[in-house]
Amino acid sequence: MYVAVKGGEAAIANAHQLLADRRRGDRSVPALTLEQIAGQFQLGLDRVMAEGSLYDVELAAMAVRQSRGDLIEAIFLLRAYRTTLPRFGASVPLDTGNMAIERRISATYKDLPGGQLLGPTFDYTHRLIDPAMAGDGPVEPGLRRPLAPGDAHCPRVTDLLGDEGLIERDVAATADEPGDLTREPLEFPAGRDLRLQALARGDEGFLLSLAYSTQRGYARTHPFVGEIRIGLVEVEVDMPELGFAVPIGRVRLTECQMVNQFKGSAKEPPQFTRGYGLVFGQSERKAMAMSLVDRALRADEFGEERVAPAQDEEFVIAHSDNVQATGFVEHLKLPHYVDFQAELDLVRRMRAEHAAAENARAEREAAE
Rank of each mutant, 00 (worst) to 15 (best):
S320H: 02
S320I: 00
S320W: 01
S320F: 00
D321K: 02
D321E: 04
D321Q: 04
N322P: 15
N322C: 14
N322T: 12
N322W: 01
N322F: 00
N322I: 07
N322A: 15
N322G: 04
N322R: 11
N322Y: 01
V323T: 09
V323C: 06
V323D: 00
V323Y: 01
V323I: 10
V323M: 02
V323W: 01
Q324I: 07
Q324A: 12
Q324S: 12
Q324R: 14
Q324W: 10
A325I: 00
A325S: 09
A325L: 08
A325E: 10
A325P: 00
A325R: 13
A325W: 02
A325K: 06
T326V: 01
T326W: 07
T326R: 15
T326L: 09
G327F: 07
G327S: 05
G327K: 06
G327D: 09
G327N: 12
F328T: 03
F328P: 00
F328H: 09
F328V: 04
V329L: 11
V329N: 04
V329R: 07
V329S: 06
V329W: 05
V329T: 12
V329M: 07
E330L: 08
E330N: 11
E330K: 07
E330Y: 04
E330S: 11
H331I: 14
H331A: 14
H331W: 05
H331T: 15
H331P: 01
H331E: 15
L332S: 07
L332R: 07
L332F: 09
K333R: 12
K333C: 01
K333Q: 05
K333W: 02
K333M: 04
L334Y: 11
L334H: 08
L334K: 02
L334R: 08
L334D: 09
L334C: 05
P335V: 00
P335S: 03
P335H: 00
H336N: 10
H336L: 08
Y337M: 12
Y337R: 15
Y337I: 15
V338T: 10
V338P: 00
V338K: 10
V338N: 03
D339Y: 07
D339S: 08
D339F: 02
D339N: 05
D339T: 13
F340I: 07
F340W: 10
F340P: 00
F340S: 05
Q341R: 10
Q341D: 05
Q341A: 12
Q341H: 07
Q341I: 13
A342G: 08
A342E: 15
A342N: 09
A342K: 14
A342Q: 14
E343H: 04
E343V: 12
L344V: 09
D345T: 11
D345Y: 09
D345Q: 12
L346N: 07
V347L: 13
V347G: 00
V347T: 07
V347Q: 02
R348T: 15
R348E: 14
R348H: 12
R348C: 12
R348S: 11
R348V: 15
R348G: 05
R349I: 09
R349Q: 13
R349H: 06
R349T: 13
R349V: 11
R349Y: 03
R349G: 04
R349M: 09
M350A: 13
M350Y: 03
M350I: 14
M350D: 11
R351T: 07
R351C: 06
R351Y: 02
A352Q: 14
A352E: 13
A352P: 01
A352F: 05
E353Q: 12
E353S: 09
E353T: 06
